[in-house]
Design a protein around this nucleic acid. Structure first.
Length: 273
DNA sequence: TCTGCATGAAAAA
DNA sequence: TTTTCCTGCAGAG
């Protein structure tokens, strides 16, 4: 679930449900007990996301300038928020953090990071991130500078959060397919015009992901006719479709491990030049 | 019921 | 390059 669109969607949801509310915070599991205790009784001033990182700015009740605890969350591979209205269910299992306020609650389980940080740590963290397609002021040229200087395969560079922040394994594979790009092509061989087109495409795809809460990359013309709700498999071109026919040319989709992650591509549509 | 895998990334080696 | 974190789910049995 968690690529950049998921975190931006969560930031919006948390802002909408808890922004301006005094929250009750607890860590039933105990692993974030001190942090939850610091947050408990403060007001959520702002929730925001950068790449795959989520931040909550808290402050004293009624003080819109914040200055209170700063919460940093990274979901990693398994992390998940479950949200609801009214009375929250009895805490079960490993519940890292429960927030409640304004008639809503949200539970966080299995995150890689759930910690209180200071402004310096946030600045350092953000300094390591490349431009985020979901931020309006992000500069794709910054990412291109990195691509342009590297012999590393473009498929590896796209997963590097210091090149582009927020891309994960699904968007990576799908973006390469949509631009008919050989995953092993060196970053430096990607022309500027192609990168501009890929960036624009990413912005569109990820914004749609924020709205819908899922990743859909298959164009209308490549979808099964007369079908409304796409299954997960039908929503993508190549991701996890190993051995299945390419939606465009019918060639079986291939898979290989690249920098520790499964990569999926069509050997014909994305053939080396 | 059991097993392996997964949309991530840091740390260890 | 491998291990670790530590959860949920699909598919096998």
């Amino acid at each position: 679930m968690p690529e950049g669109h998921t975190l931006h969607r969560l930031a919006r949801e948390h802002q909408r449900l808890f922004g301006g509310e005094v929250v009750h915070a607890a860590s039933p599991q105990g692993r974030f007990a001190a942090g939850a205790s610091a947050i408990d009784g403060t007001e959520l001033v702002r929730a925001e996301a950068y790449g795959k990182h989520l931040f909550h700015h808290y402050g004293a009740p009624g003080n819109p300038s914040g200055g209170g605890p700063l919460l940093h969350i990274h979901l990693g591979l398994y992390g998940k928020f479950t949200t609801g209205a009214g009375e929250p269910p009895e805490p079960r299992g490993a519940l890292r953090l429960r927030l409640a306020g304004g008639g809503h609650w949200t539970d966080l389980r299995g995150p890689t990071a759930c910690e209180l940080v200071d402004e310096d740590a946030v600045a350092a963290l953000l300094g390591r991130l490349g431009p985020d397609p979901l931020h309006a002021r992000s500069d794709p040229a910054r990412a291109f500078q990195k691509l342009h200087r590297s012999r590393t395969p473009v498929a590896a560079l796209l997963m590097d959060q210091s090149v582009v922040a927020g891309i994960g394994n699904v968007y990576r594979a799908e973006l390469l397919f949509r631009h008919r790009l050989d995953p092993m092509r060196p970053g430096r061989s990607v022309p500027a015009e192609l990168w501009d087109a890929m960036w624009a495409d990413l912005v569109t795809l990820m914004r749609a992901g924020v709205r819908s809460g899922r990743i859909v990359t298959v164009r209308e013309e490549d979808r099964p006719p007369g079908k409304r709700r796409l299954t997960r498999e039908e929503a993508v071109y190549v991701y996890r479709r190993t051995g299945l026919p390419c939606r465009v040319c019918g060639t079986p989709v291939r898979t290989a491990v690249l920098v520790g992650r499964n990569l999926f591509w069509c050997p014909r549509c994305q053939a080396p030049e």
